[in-house]
Design a protein around this nucleic acid. Sequence first.
DNA 1: TAGATTGTTAATCGATTAACAATC
DNA 2: TAGATTGTTAATCGATTAACAATC
Lengths: 214, 214
Amino acid sequence: MDGGNRRMKTPKISEAVVRRLPIYLRFLNELNVKNVHTVSSQDLGQKLDLNPAQIRKDLAYFGEFGKKGIGYDVGYLIEKIRQILKLDKLIPVALVGTGNLGRALSNYNAYMHDNMKIVAVFDADERKIGGSLNNLTVQPMRELGEAIRKHQVRIGIITVPAAEAQNVANQFVEAGVEGILNFAPIIIKVPLTVRVHHADLTAELQSLAYYLEK
Amino acid sequence: MDGGNRRMKTPKISEAVVRRLPIYLRFLNELNVKNVHTVSSQDLGQKLDLNPAQIRKDLAYFGEFGKKGIGYDVGYLIEKIRQILKLDKLIPVALVGTGNLGRALSNYNAYMHDNMKIVAVFDADERKIGGSLNNLTVQPMRELGEAIRKHQVRIGIITVPAAEAQNVANQFVEAGVEGILNFAPIIIKVPLTVRVHHADLTAELQSLAYYLEK
DNA sequence: TAGATTGTTAATCGATTAACAATC
DNA sequence: TAGATTGTTAATCGATTAACAATC
């Protein structure tokens, strides 16, 4: 289902593991800012509400980054996780949909995500086109393909209404995007070669309701 | 770790199951709008990229909602899932942080989430106070406790910078909120009686990078 | 009746946690 | 050396999927 084992550099990393790496990275960056140079799986587990054994196991999938009896060097581990997540080189990102959510994300992005950079923004609404968003000019949808190829965009973000999301996804795929982060409340269909993550804010909120008393 | 088995109405429902219920609900609502009256686990699985057996099993935790040989009645299943998720009665929600993300969510909310309603919004920035957000007036933080009690707010949404998130969470907890949806990129600590969901947009995006080729 | 599809049990698969030898 | 902590194996736990009797 994976289409053959690429380079077999890593055996078979589960999604759960990959999703925890950014969490580790973020906390390590905090430690780094505070000039903390060493951290144990114990410390990490405590702060992140995770089992220390799990953290060690997660990291061990990718190499031996720690020192027995000591722990992990913060700077070194940051470097390694950034490599694993491919955040050690610039990843150009495009965004479609310049509503509140789109604007929120491009601000977020402007200073938060090391090496992921929104390089083009699009909107289907003629009135929004030509407007400015975080130093970028909002472009019409018809320019999407060309702009994506020109900037070598690898990841697309969808912040449009559900009814338009599949259409936008198709255009992203057509233009050669490798990954999509979809905020529209709908399951979009793409070829197996394209990875989709679904940030489902409504589902997040509704599932929270389940845990209310009575 | 759960503090005893409450009413034992349901045996022990996993988080994974609960997170899928809103997905089912949303698609069922779409069918309902299209006047589709019956749906099979097969159909659902196809549209939602899930195994039909899993869908049947998920639903079976809560009762026998289908008819053998026929499938599920769309309207009836909607009603049942809404009950399970406690969306059959109004759930008042408060939001702290009226930046782009906060504004995006309150718009979203205004028309999307059946029976979850943002009834109060707050900001720490004096300049934002008194402003209007989706028919609500932005209130200062000092009014949070009183407003939450007055409106019987049960869920709090945090859309403030990481540095302030724990503080806001504390105030939510203090005021008696039962669940928190946290958008700040930090793990917040709350008593076990309060449920926290973490919508980690940065992590979502960064983990996507892992799946890029090369 | 024949065909379809549920609810549920059993089988499989995968992820988390515990335990501990290795070693800094 | 004694204490601490990793990397890793084994044990446990939990979730997904397959299979099928029941039945509409």
